[in-house]
Amino acid sequence: MSESHALKADIAADDDLVTPGRTGWQRFESTLYGAGSIVVLLLVWEIVPHLITISAGTKLFFTTPSQIGGTLWTMFATGTIWKPLGVSASGFSLGLVLAIAVGLPLGVLIGRSRTLNAMFDPFITAFNATPRLVFLPLLMLWFGLGLGSKVVIVFIGALFPILINTYEGVRNTDRVLVNVVRSFGASEWDVARLVVVPNAMPYIIAGLRLAIGRAVLGVVVAEFFGSESGLGVMMVQAAGRYQVAVVFAGLIVFAALSLAMTALVQILENRLSRWRPQHAGNE
C-alpha cells in the first residue's frame, strides 16, 4: 500500500508521465452514441406524425420537436420567457441559498455539541419524516401566492438534505486530527474551519446535490398548486389552453436549469476534492 503510493508520488513528480483512464477515441465514441440516440429519438418523434394520420381531436394533445423548438425560440426572441423564468429562478436560488446559510452552520453546531444535538434532534427527525410538500397550503396562507411562499417551500425542502448530511459528515470527524490542531492551540472555531468542515465536505456536496433536486421540486409544485407567476404557472395555464408545445418548453427549461445546477456542483466538487485519492488521476 505505502509502496504503491510512494511510486505514485514518484510518477506524479515526473510531469510527462500521465496514465490516462480512457483514450480520446473511447471517450469520443461514447459521446457519439449518447448524442446519436437523442438525435434518432427526436427524428422519429418529428417524422411519425407526418406518416400516420391523426384525428384533429387527438392532435390537440401532441406536438413535435420542431414546434417545441420554435416555441422556445419565440419565447426567448420576444422575451416573454424572462419574467416567469426570473420568478422561478429567484424563488429557487433564494430558497437554496437560505437553506445552505442555515443548514451548514446548524449541521456543524449540532454535530459538535451534544446539548444542541439533544435539543434539535426531535424536530429534525419529525420534520424530516414528514413530506415537506404538505406544508404548502399553510405556507400559502401565511406567505401568500408570491415569492414568499415559494422561497419558504424551497427552503424547507432543501434544508434537510444539507443539514443532515453536514451533521453526518461532522460526526465522522477524525479525533486524531482534532487533537493535532488543538495541540497547536486551535480554538473551537479553528477546529471547525481547519478539520471539521473540510472533513465533512464530501457529505455536504452530496447533500447539496440532493437539495437541488428538492429545490426544483419545491418550485414546480408551488407553482402548480397556485402561484401568481413563474414557469410552472405558465405550464399549467398553457396546458389549460392545449398549448402542448409551451408545456414542453417549460419542461425543457426546468430540465436545463437542473442540469446546469448539477454541473455547477460537479465543478465545485472537483475543485474541492483534489486531495482525495480517487481524484488524483483526473487533475
Binding site: S2, E3, H5, A6, A9, A12, A13, W275, P277, A280
Partner: peptide
C-alpha cells in the same frame, strides 16, 4: 524537496 505541493495520500509512510 520537490514534494511541497503533494497531498498526503501521494506519499509513502516514511514520507
Amino acid at each position: 524537496v520537490g514534494f511541497e505541493t503533494h497531498y498526503p495520500h501521494e506519499l509513502s509512510g516514511g514520507m
